[in-house]
Amino acid sequence: MSEEDPTRRTVIKVGAAVAAVATAAPALPDVAEAKAAVTDTARISLKVNGVTHRQELEARVTLLDALRERIGLTGTKKGCDRGECGACTVLVDGRRIKSCLTLAVMQQGREITTVEGLARGDALHPVQAAFIRNDGFQCGFCTPGQLMSAVACVHEGHTGSDDEIREWMSGNLCRCGCYPNIVASVRQAAKEMS
């Protein structure tokens, strides 16, 4: 596995180039230099839902875009690409994070769980089943993020009351307006998972 890892130097070099681009855009002082740098890629491996995926990636690729555009796991959604909506929520070592706000290279060696990894074959995870039973979604676009947040919310022990669930599920927007049903889903799943 260590052969797959980028050297620390490669990551830092690429990272620095990305930072230069980000701060200088749109009027980039030295286009040629930035261009040369950002073609650098890193060979990384990501463990997603128990499966290791080896990828050659630019360091600037977010975990979200690596999942969706490279690995082909499109269940995780992009609603804003800037940490505001929660549609991209995944679990990393059991903790919920917004995958648009982290780079794929930073998540090597961690256990990443996406919505595709919740069910066991045909058997839905209790949170998935509860969302169906309580109509916890309409369009379903926020749902992968809501589900991952809900799993974490239950494990964190933030389901003591409806108000507590509301508070701890408020990082995930639902524009269809399913919140009362999401609360009911999380409440029910918490009961079944305890």
Partner: peptide, 21 residues
């Protein structure tokens, strides 16, 4: 009745436009 597209939506199998292969 529960939504007939429910399982597709809670498993990530539902492919929205940006998910098209």
């Amino acid at each position: 009745v529960s939504r007939v597209d429910g399982v597709a939506k809670v498993t990530g199998a539902a492919r929205y436009a940006a998910d098209a292969e």
